[in-house]
């Protein structure tokens, strides 16, 4: 379980924006993803979690840092090696209405990866596509239809089938359920879970729905303004959040029990998220933190282990 599949070290992704400024979407993040686990990546909109995911599958070129898959550093691969890497790392996208080409049949969408990597030809290809469609709960009757004929949940499953067709072992799921109805969300999440058991997949699950992340993830990383604030096992994070930002996030999760819900104290943060173009010095959370002290305004806290298996980037959290 603890064999590392992907190791992200000091990953940075900056974008140049108007006026010669840089937008630090992902600013020096490091984490490991173990083989067979699901690492949840949570944070509010614009915190850089999608950018991090896209950089890991090499949709974006990293500005700095390393991404090590098994023993390959994928930031300095040549074209051919990069194509090989795409066989191992795939992505599931957020919007099932935008992620399928409206002019292609389901066969061609699912078969695209097979064609690009020349895995199967002719009848073999067709057979493989049927197999995968059945794996995600669709049938071969769907193969010749076009995306607009399907519902949102079905489309998302076609997206999953496309990613699985070339047998990857690592999948970045970029908010795969946030565009779906709640009833369909469960369907897709359960499918992802079943597939993980069946095919021994490793997930990086990006989301902003904390209860879904808790349900699906083994470990969770909390991102804020391009940095990881806290990283620990999912149960630990929900039972014992240490970072003041995580605490505020957790207090916002609705609990389906009126008695607990009423007794709960909601932490309301003051102010807004600063712009990632103009990041505050020191700790990124200092302007909104209830515990802020002088050191926070000067020195950026590093992610450090406080309790075994529980890392926090905060000056104010002391080792017990």
């Amino acid at each position: 379980m603890n064999e590392t599949l992907i190791s992200v070290r000091n990953l940075k992704k900056y974008f140049n924006v108007r006026g010669g400024k840089t937008l630090k979407a992902v600013d020096d993040i490091s984490f490991d993803i173990h083989k067979g686990e699901t690492l949840g990546l949570v944070g509010e909109s614009g915190c850089g979690k999608s950018t991090a995911g896209r950089t890991i599958v090499r949709l974006y070129e990293a500005t700095g840092g390393d991404i090590i898959y098994k023993d390959m550093n994928i930031n300095n691969l040549n074209k051919k090696q990069l194509k090989d890497y795409t066989r191992h790392a795939q992505m599931i996208f957020q919007d099932p209405y935008a992620s399928l080409n409206p002019r292609m049949t389901v066969t061609d969408i699912v078969g695209e990866g097979i064609d690009i990597h020349n895995l199967y030809k002719g009848m073999e290809r067709q057979k493989r596509i049927y197999e995968i469609l059945e794996l995600v709960g669709l049938s071969r009757e769907h193969a010749n239809r076009f995306p607009h004929e399907f519902s949102g949940g079905q489309r998302q499953r076609i997206g999953v089938a496309r990613a699985l067709a070339i047998e990857p072992d690592f999948i970045v799921a970029d908010e795969p359920i946030s565009a779906l109805d709640v009833s369909i969300q469960a369907q897709v999440v359960n499918l992802l879970k079943d597939l993980q058991d069946e095919l021994n997949l490793t997930y990086l699950f990006i989301a902003h729905d904390l209860s879904m992340v808790k349900h699906l993830s083994d470990r969770v990383a909390v991102m804020y303004l391009g940095s990881i604030m806290e990283l620990t096992e999912s149960k630990e994070l929900y039972d014992n959040p240490l970072h003041p930002y995580t605490k505020a996030l957790m207090s916002a999760v609705p609990i389906p029990d009126p008695d607990v819900s009423r007794a709960k104290q909601r932490i309301i943060l003051k102010g807004d998220v600063p712009s990632p173009i103009d990041v505050p010095a020191g700790c990124k959370f200092q302007g909104r933190c209830p515990l802020v002290e002088d050191i926070c305004r000067v020195e950026k806290p590093e992610l450090r282990q406080v309790i075994p298996g529980h890392e926090v980037a905060c000056h104010m959290v002391k080792k017990p």
Partner: peptide
Amino acid sequence: QMEFVLAAKTLGADTTRILLKHLIPN
């Protein structure tokens, strides 16, 4: 910018394929 083009890129598609199979037909 659409996700289906990004998906093709993640699958390893080259520029020619993206232009001919995804962009021009649409």
